[in-house]
Simulated assay, not measured.
Amino acid sequence: MNIDYKIGEVKLSYKPKFKNQQKVTCSEDAYKYMLSTYKKGTICYKEYFKVLFLNQANQILGYTLISEGGLTETTADVRLIFQAALLTNS
C-alpha cells in the first residue's frame, strides 16, 4: 500500500510597517490609536474585540481583530490572543 501523506503548511507572519513606533502613556492614548482602526459608522452597531500589542517600552507594535459579534456580544478565544502576542513578541 503506497500512501502519499501531504499536509498544508501554516504560516504566521508579523511585518511591522513603521520604524518610528508610537508610545502609549495612558488609557486615552490607547483609545485614540484604537479608535482610528474602526471604519466610520460601524463602531455603534457591532461589538468588536481588538487587541493592541505593546513592547516593554509601551511602544505600539500593532493590533489585530480577534472577533466581531452582533449588537450585544462577541466572543474572544484567549488562544488566538496569546498566539498573536507571541508572534509579535509583545
Rank of each mutant, 00 (worst) to 15 (best):
residue 29 D to P: 00
residue 9 E to Y: 05
residue 83 Q to V: 06
residue 87 L to C: 05
residue 63 Y to A: 07
residue 53 F to Y: 15
residue 51 V to T: 08
residue 69 G to W: 00
residue 72 T to D: 13
residue 31 Y to R: 09
residue 63 Y to W: 12
residue 90 S to V: 03
residue 84 A to D: 12
residue 41 G to T: 03
residue 52 L to N: 01
residue 36 S to I: 04
residue 23 K to W: 01
residue 56 Q to F: 05
residue 76 A to S: 11
residue 16 P to G: 01
residue 4 D to R: 11
residue 31 Y to D: 08
residue 88 T to F: 06
residue 23 K to F: 00
residue 76 A to G: 07
residue 8 G to Q: 08
residue 41 G to V: 04
residue 18 F to D: 14
residue 89 N to Q: 15
residue 37 T to D: 05
residue 54 L to C: 00
residue 60 I to N: 02
residue 38 Y to Q: 02
residue 51 V to E: 04
residue 12 L to Q: 12
residue 86 L to F: 07
residue 40 K to T: 11
residue 76 A to R: 10
residue 81 I to C: 04
residue 31 Y to S: 05
residue 26 C to I: 00
residue 34 M to T: 02
residue 1 M to W: 07
residue 11 K to S: 12
residue 76 A to D: 04
residue 25 T to D: 01
residue 39 K to C: 11
residue 72 T to R: 09
residue 58 N to V: 01
residue 80 L to K: 15
residue 62 G to I: 01
residue 33 Y to K: 04
residue 38 Y to C: 02
residue 6 K to W: 05
residue 44 C to K: 13
residue 18 F to A: 12
residue 30 A to Y: 03
residue 63 Y to V: 02
residue 41 G to I: 04
residue 34 M to E: 02
residue 35 L to N: 15
residue 23 K to S: 04
residue 19 K to C: 06
residue 52 L to W: 01
residue 9 E to G: 06
residue 84 A to P: 03
residue 40 K to A: 14
residue 10 V to H: 10
residue 17 K to H: 07
residue 26 C to M: 01
residue 88 T to D: 06
residue 56 Q to C: 08
residue 2 N to T: 14
residue 62 G to A: 03
residue 21 Q to T: 09
residue 43 I to R: 10
residue 71 L to I: 10
residue 70 G to E: 09
residue 42 T to W: 03
residue 58 N to W: 00
residue 19 K to E: 14
residue 34 M to I: 02
residue 88 T to R: 10
residue 21 Q to F: 05
residue 75 T to K: 11
residue 37 T to I: 01
residue 40 K to F: 07
residue 89 N to F: 05
residue 71 L to H: 08
residue 80 L to E: 15
residue 32 K to T: 07
residue 81 I to F: 06
residue 40 K to E: 15
residue 5 Y to R: 15
residue 70 G to F: 03
residue 17 K to C: 07
residue 76 A to K: 11
residue 58 N to R: 07
residue 82 F to Y: 10
residue 66 I to K: 03
residue 47 E to C: 14
residue 19 K to Q: 11
residue 22 Q to M: 06
residue 30 A to W: 01
residue 15 K to Y: 08
residue 47 E to M: 12
residue 39 K to I: 13
residue 9 E to R: 09
residue 34 M to D: 00
residue 25 T to F: 00
